[in-house]
Design a protein around this nucleic acid. Structure first.
Lengths: 219, 219
DNA sequence: CGCAGCCCCTAACACTGTTAGGGGCTGCTC
DNA sequence: GAGCAGCCCCTAACAGTGTTAGGGGCTGCG
């Protein structure tokens, strides 16, 4: 790692390096020094191209969305809206800690704007009010971000060592089943439903409800 | 601050102290040393009662939800479901950075479980399948968390100095309006709708759509 | 009395983001 | 060609972070 001349480093160069560090070490392990080392430079050198670590996170947010592809323009607006949601979730699941990076960050990178533009175009074409189209778009991204964040959140402090997806769900199931049934009858009864590790259908459920609710606006 | 004998410190004591520090300094400014100082102790002393900083954040998550109140049991399930969402959002807005604390954290504190238990009870009583009730509950919390997180996220690196709520929205509006209209016709046209600072009605919009979608399951 | 144990301390470790200041290297101007 | 401005990267340091090791007062029990 770290080629000696290293080529003059740019913001894009820093962004892709940060992306590699993020993939390797996770968001908590992402430091200025490590990003700098990844491009063969010193930490302080980054500050010539970037104001903050925060600005690097902004670049990361853009880079994560960068390889988004808009769904095909076939079928009705509903199928396209659903597909937007699915692809957004897939994007957040593809890169490590992507949801946490993107969560508290309103990106205005060109790639993000292009997707948003396209999405709004289809919603208006489908017959939604301007205000409704804007809110429908906002609703979708809020749901997807919130879902993936919950989906990836470990159970309390039982975290790090846990194996992949669904591990937390199974442990949560144990917690629910162990509860006193007279105090929490519903939690005990629904323990299996609440902790079903099939996140895909759980996500799809919410997505379909939202689409249904939006469809009711068009009648 | 910091009374000399300080009384023997407990986990609850640490939790409320952490809550005060969070309110004063924000999540980024919350450190072991500051929490310790708040209870009149040294940083290392905390580790007798708590394993990690992560565990303090868990305590914080519980403490934030602690003063949740379940909505009155009047009216239909829909009104109660909506009210759950509204109160959850209000809770996250009430304490500083509460959304960020709660976001990536599956709390199993007793207060959280009690609310969940009650919520599931009402959904089942309304006629939802066990699986649907569980998913409806999950859907609501995903939406609320995602929404508040987006709602509070600053616009790119224009952050810290910005005034309160709606400031980011107004600046985002400027960004959208300044875009080339031939490349982003919809973004320019909907700039006002996209950046309407009235977050309450925006939240309500999504909430109503979700409730509509769920209602369609009961027919 | 002595001895556990609980509880808190001081000191240190490795690491973080960030800034100050210095020095090569480029390319322009006289 | 000489000098100079600027870009770009460096070393060194600062204050602060989470966390651990080890010590030392208390308490209550045998």
């Amino acid at each position: 790692m770290a080629q000696p001349p290293a080529r003059t480093l740019t913001r894009e160069c820093i962004a892709t390096a940060a992306l590699r560090v993020l993939e390797r070490e996770g968001l908590a392990g992402l430091s200025m020094r490590k990003v700098a080392a990844e491009v063969g430079a010193q930490a302080a050198s980054l500050y010539w191209h970037v104001r903050n670590k925060e600005e690097i996170l902004d670049l990361l947010g853009d880079a994560i969305i960068a390889d988004a592809e808009v769904p095909p323009r076939t079928g009705d607006w509903r199928e396209q809206y659903l597909e937007y949601g699915r692809r957004y979730r897939a994007l957040l699941l593809a890169k490590r800690d992507a949801a946490k990076v993107v969560a508290g960050r309103l990106s205005t990178g060109p790639r993000v704007l292009a997707v948003l533009e396209d999405q709004l175009d289809r919603l208006r074409e489908a017959g939604f009010t301007d205000a409704d189209a804007a809110m429908a778009s906002y609703l979708l991204s809020a749901y997807v971000q919130g879902f993936v964040l919950q989906e990836q959140s470990p159970l309390s402090a039982t975290e790090a060592a846990g194996a992949g997806r669904g591990q937390a769900a199974r442990e949560a199931g144990d917690v629910f089943r162990a509860l006193p049934a007279e105090d929490y009858p519903n939690l005990v009864a629904l323990a299996d439903d609440l902790t079903d590790p099939d996140m895909d259908t759980r996500f799809e459920f919410g997505l379909q409800r939202i689409a249904d609710g939006l469809a009711a606006l068009l009648t």
